[in-house]
Design a binder for these strands. Structure first.
Lengths: 145, 145
DNA sequence: TTAATATAGTTGCGCAAGCAACCAAGAGAG
DNA sequence: CTCTCTTGGTTGCTTGCGCAACTATATTAA
């Protein structure tokens, strides 16, 4: 049977959860925390709100993911003294320690996806996904993710 | 920040849930039931097991999705007399009635994704997703989805 | 024929995600 | 200064999903 874009994307998304659970679960990272953590490795000490933007997740889920990361000792949340509503998120030494393992697992998923792709195809597959996401953003990007 | 294949795919998957909820919710179809229904429109009166294969979903979720579809009057489940363990799934007249609306909504999501794509790019985006899925299947396809 | 094994489907559990309602703190307008 | 409005974050509720354990029927082997 013909399978649609949507079906393929859903399948890949579900499989990625299984993959990340398997690879990162032992470090105390659930599949719902991967992108948040990745964003923090890229830029640490940010407001929770900027993680909402970066990861395009709902603020409720960012709150819960961070609670979990904190519980597992990967992140610290402290109030911003300049704005007592806001919280600053910082990676712990434990998180820094596992950074390499994290990225290894992270990259290996991309490599699994693009097995047998030429460099051109790898680039193109990424670009097309990016454009699909960009097509959707106007409809869903504004409100609250 | 550079966003990975994984992140884009996850985003698109989540947005598709929102889209389908919005478009199909009124007909009593949740985003988790779309692909099952689509498969049934393609081939009706099948075993639950073949939906598991077609939709690459876990059998537990197929069971629950069908329970919900039955609850909403879109599907009937009857025991197969030749194998009393198995159940045959059939669309109701109500499901047939909304078929066109269903496919309209369904296609409009694909069209949203591929806005501004050339025909070549549409085809290519589909093909690349297909190959990514095929790359993953050996690792996750066998067990039980 | 009976005992072991496999298979179709269901259920309990836990995680991820969106929505809506909420709280507390800041910002602006009178 | 106070009253309203906005904004960062949390919590309760619901849905989707995978895993593991379970029931009931089928199949196969002894």
């Amino acid at each position: 049977m013909h399978k649609s874009h949507g079906q393929r994307i859903g399948y890949l998304s579900r499989m990625s959860h299984r993959y990340f659970s398997e690879k990162l679960g032992a470090m105390g990272i659930g599949p719902g925390q991967t992108f948040i953590l990745k964003s923090l490795y890229h830029e640490d000490g940010v407001h929770q709100e900027s993680l909402v933007d970066n990861c395009q997740l709902h603020k409720a889920n960012v709150a819960r993911a961070l609670a979990k990361l904190e519980e597992n000792g990967l992140v610290k949340r402290e109030s911003d003294l300049n704005d007592k509503r806001a919280k600053l998120i910082r990676l712990t030494p434990k998180a820094i320690e596992i950074k390499d393992d994290f990225f290894t697992a992270f990259r290996s998923w991309s490599e699994m996806l693009t097995q047998g792709f030429t460099d051109k195809e790898k680039e193109l597959s990424f670009e097309l996904l990016d454009r699909m996401a960009a097509n959707v953003e106007p409809y869903y990007g504004d409100k609250n993710n």
